[in-house]
Computed example of a mutant assay.
Amino acid sequence: MSDTTARSSVPRLRQVVLDTEDARVLAEFYRELLGLEYLPGDEPEARAEGDDPADWLVLTDGDGARVLAFQQVASLPAPTWPEGPRPQMMHLDFWVSTVDELREQHARAVALGARVLEDGTDDPEEAIVIFADPAGHPFCIFVPDE
């Protein structure tokens, strides 16, 4: 089977969707953290004052490709990472090139509203920081050893 045939015969990932009790707050967090943009029409200024809060928002990369979406839900207990009564079902991994960049992104993430779950910045085997985003979803920023 050729690469073209294989590509057209399987589902393709459109975006990763995160459930949240406040879609706008979580979308803004990841928009700032990752330098993404709103899908046209999803920008805060696109909604008139007094409109219902956004229940579905999409962020795109610089080329317009969908990356993350946020779905408003009535209630979503945060996972208890790494163990506990509400284990995580998934998490997002992000990487940077150096430990200095990791330190810089650590400070940015916290300033944007992330909470540190585990700080392994100085771990000689794997420099990594595990965070919870404002909705409680775990995510990591690490320096790959590749």
Rank of each mutant, 00 (worst) to 15 (best):
E83H: 04
D122E: 15
V116R: 06
D93Q: 09
A109L: 13
P82I: 05
A107W: 01
R103H: 03
D123S: 10
V96G: 09
D100G: 04
R108H: 14
L92I: 15
S97C: 00
R108C: 12
R86D: 13
H91M: 09
D119P: 06
P82S: 01
P82L: 01
G113V: 06
V110K: 05
W95L: 03
E83N: 05
P85V: 13
E104F: 11
D119S: 07
R115L: 10
D123A: 07
H91K: 09
H106V: 05
H91E: 09
A107E: 15
L92D: 06
G120K: 05
L92R: 08
W95V: 07
M89P: 00
V110Y: 05
L117D: 04
R115P: 00
E83S: 08
H106P: 00
R115A: 14
D122F: 06
H91F: 12
P87C: 03
L117Q: 08
A109Q: 11
D93S: 13
L117I: 12
Q105F: 15
R115C: 10
L112V: 06
D122M: 05
S97W: 07
E118F: 06
H91Q: 14
L92N: 07
A107N: 06
L102C: 02
D123K: 03
A114H: 06
G120Y: 01
V110N: 04
P87N: 04
L112W: 04
R103V: 04
P82D: 01
G113H: 08
W95K: 11
V99I: 02
T98G: 02
P85D: 14
P87L: 04
L112Q: 00
L102R: 02
V116I: 14
A114D: 09
G84Y: 10
V116P: 08
E101A: 14
G120Q: 09
H106C: 10
E83V: 07
D122A: 13
Q88L: 12
Q88P: 06
R115T: 15
L102M: 00
A109H: 09
E104A: 15
T121E: 04
A109N: 09
P87I: 03
